[in-house]
Every structure is written in C-alpha cells, then in structure tokens.
C-alpha cells in the first residue's frame, strides 16, 4: 500500500510538471512585467529641482554630479553606468524632485547615453 501511494504521488508530480506553464519569459521578445516599485531608470521633475546638491552628497556610487556655473546656473548630470539604482537620492531629496521609474535600464552601445543631463538651468536675467 505504501509503495502504491508513493508511485501515485510521483504521478501527480509528473502531471503537474506537464500542465504548468513555463516560469521563464522569452525576454527581449516578450515584454517584461516589472512591479511598480521596481527601482529602474532615474527620472526628474525639473520644476522641483533647485540644485541644492543633497542627492549628490549622499550618492554612494558617485553617480550624480552638480556643475554650478554661477549662483543661478547649474547642471545636474547623472551617470547611468555608475549608478547603483539604490534610491538614496530620491529619499535624500527634500522636494521629491528625483525618483525612480520602473523602466529597466538596458545596455547600450552609444557612449553618449552614459552621461545624462537631468536638469540644466540657465540664468534668466541678461545684461
């Protein structure tokens, strides 16, 4: 009776394995379903960013850089290859300007994609 039960349990395992769909997806031919909270590419809301530099100070991977030309002119640069996608910049930002989308960051053969200017603010007063 025990041997019969054991053989029966093996049969149910075999049927399960035949019926279940595969666990893997055929990326990149199939679209990848990522959860909303997935920490993907960095995006910025330019209206909210004031160039304070808190995100730069707390980034552990030196993935952000703030270039200040004068008191009102600055450029915030992001390096996707150095970034660790940890989310520390979005937590340190007091104005919730910088955050993650859930887009997967793919590899690229274009070297210019490795330097992304997130916000550039020119001086509005002339003369």
């Amino acid at each position: 009776m025990e041997r019969l039960k054991k053989r029966f349990s093996l049969l149910s395992a075999i049927i399960d394995a035949l019926i279940e769909p595969p666990e893997t997806v055929g990326y990149p031919f199939t679209k990848l379903e990522l959860p909303e909270t997935y920490r993907g590419a960095i995006v910025i809301d330019p209206e909210k960013c004031t160039g304070c530099g808190l995100c730069v100070r707390d980034c552990p991977a030196q993935g952000l850089e703030l270039v200040k030309k004068s008191r009102h002119e600055f450029k915030l640069i992001h390096y996707p290859a150095r970034c660790a996608y940890c989310g520390q910049c979005s937590i340190s930002c007091r104005r919730k300007a910088i955050s993650h989308s859930n887009q997967l960051v793919g590899s690229t053969s274009n070297p210019e994609a490795l330097v992304v200017v997130l916000k550039e603010k020119e001086d509005e007063e002339q003369g």
Binding site: T37, C86, G87, I91
Partner: peptide, 15 residues
C-alpha cells in the same frame, strides 16, 4: 522582496 522594496537581491530597504 522585489515587490515591496524594489530589488531582488540589493534591497536598499534600510535607512
């Protein structure tokens, strides 16, 4: 872990 923290292995959960 990925659905709640955003990463499978590198969670960055603690502050």
């Amino acid at each position: 872990m990925e659905a709640i923290s955003g990463g499978r292995v590198s969670h960055a959960a603690n502050q």
